[in-house]
Design a protein around this nucleic acid. Structure first.
Lengths: 320, 320
DNA sequence: GTGAAAGCGCTAACAG
DNA sequence: CTGTTAGCGCTTTCAC
């Protein structure tokens, strides 16, 4: 076009070698005037790399996942990578199909470690670099030679349990979401932190504000003398807290309420909701950093990064 | 591989012609055993299509945009299209860079119509099919020969204003977010719906819960006798409502509070927040349907679709 | 109904 | 430091 061969331009753009001042200037000028841009598809075909990463979450509407996406997106952007997001809505079938088509389009995948087993297996089969994010699952570490950014659900629940015990709560109801493999870990942490408390469990079908709302009456009045309700996540807790207010139940006077994730709105509820920060955004950031590192170096290290949950005490679990 | 030429396989996969039973069976069998998948990059290079669409939003953390993404994602998925999401965080520079790189990777772009002017211009220059979503801007229709899914901000504010007037509110403060080009339209609707009310305006730097929280005291006590506060969006309203409770202000007894967007959490606030549903998810769905139609037919029609805002009356604007 | 040949726009290996 | 040659995996004329 303006002096040199395509190869030279390619090398310049990919900063592979150094060039004579004259040539470099001419090329840059030409690029400028022609407003030339690489064709990513062609580049991909030649290199086998797409400079795009995939991110799979359970539920786009849950602010916890939005936080993860936000974190991941930021880091990807800083490295010039694109981000493809898929929401498989807790459906096993979705997860499989979406993941397998996604894998073809990207250089690597970040996915919730709560992915269905089959989808997890498929991820490994895809041979793409992959990083899982989410709660630690002690029993399964050996089974998963995938890199991951973890946060201890047990620890999170333990912190919360200790706090509740210290505030004098003795009869706790745990609103469980058994579809999640993280659920039991949380219950476990709670139990160990509150050996003297009676802990009963109610199982929920969904992890939504609506689910928390509709279970409220039976959760509050069901187990007699219940003085604290811990929810699988903040979405449930928000719904529950709201309905408790509607029912005229005093929070925290009569009953304490808490959740997990530290979703932004929890701070703005009345009363503000005690929760455990699960580092949503940081999970996304770290996972993306790890993944990009794997992509660039080509090493498939099954690194495991640990984040620490932080208890956020707010008014919803104040003294009785 | 197993009997035929690459051409034939290609034609079969893309359902271009019909084939003899025998051949079709053999090919399908081979695809099955080899677990063959098309290489999207190669396909893209040959066809010039990526089967991916881009979606650009202001702020991933705002549930309104999450709703749009959700809607768009669903439709894209149903049509076998991937979705690349970019969050330009209200930064003009971001918007430009991100959009121009995005444009190369996708077959079309959906973007908030609140995009900075320069970015908007760039979108048009990219010559990719594009659909804007968001509030109608009457003055600019001619200037934008882009397809769009619109919702009348004026109408939304008018509905809300009428409701407030009917509930006897006479001294209204509007928490404005002047960075948004939609802001004035809302104020305008409010003014026309409440000709007998005194409307004062406070300008905010951010459209976040924190912004609503920190302006609360001056908004509530500043204009004397203020009996209603309308916020640019629900995020601001949530922060404001929370802080009003902290300050011991009665809502709606002393002051009414309302926002726009019908973000899911508004229903679960105490008191539940009156808002105007701006059809977040539907905006995403319609925009994606429109865009995919444009991509498939190749026509660049500057269609404009209108959605109707719906007033959602809740307790936060009950009678004094 | 099926195949052969050419080419999409780039990068990689090897010369010069 | 720069250019030549080849080929990434698919689709697309155009013959057969």
């Amino acid at each position: 076009m303006a002096g040199v061969s395509a190869t030279t331009v390619s090398k310049l753009i990919n900063r592979q070698k150094s060039f004579s001042q004259a040539v470099e200037a001419r090329i840059r000028a030409a690029i400028e005037t022609l407003d030339y841009r690489q064709n990513p598809a062609a580049r991909s075909m030649a290199t086998g790399q797409t400079r795009v990463v995939g991110l799979a979450v359970q539920d786009l509407r849950n602010p916890h996942f939005t936080g993860v996406i936000q974190g991941a997106s930021q880091v990807a952007e800083a490295h010039g990578f694109g981000l493809m997001v898929v929401d498989f809505k807790e459906k096993e079938l979705n997860a499989q199909n979406l993941l397998s088509t996604l894998a073809l389009r990207v250089d690597g995948i970040i996915a919730s470690s709560r992915l269905p087993e089959v989808a997890l297996a498929q991820l490994q089969a895809s041979r793409k670099p992959a990083v899982l994010f989410g709660q630690t699952e002690p029993g399964r570490i050996d089974a998963q030679p995938l890199a991951s950014v973890r946060i201890r659900g047990y620890q999170a629940a333990y912190l919360l349990g200790k706090h509740l015990a210290e505030s004098g709560r003795r009869r706790v109801t745990y609103l469980s979401y058994p579809k999640s493999r993280w659920d039991q870990e949380r219950l476990h942490g709670l139990r160990e932190a509150m050996p003297e408390a009676k802990i009963s469990v109610i199982e929920l079908e969904a992890q939504t504000m609506e689910a928390g709302e509709s279970i409220a009456a039976s959760a509050i009045y069901g187990a007699d003398g219940c003085d604290a309700i811990v929810c699988y996540n903040d979405m449930i807790a928000i719904g529950l807290l709201h309905q408790a207010c509607v029912l005229g139940v005093e929070v925290p006077g009569q009953i304490a309420i808490a959740g997990f994730d530290n979703v932004p709105t929890t701070r703005f509820m009345t009363p503000p909701l005690t929760t455990v920060d699960m580092c949503s955004q940081e999970q996304g950031e770290k996972a993306m950093e790890l993944l990009l590192h794997m992509i660039k170096t080509g090493e498939a290290a099954a690194t495991e990064l640990q984040l620490e949950p932080r208890l956020i005490v707010r008014a919803s679990t104040g003294r009785k």
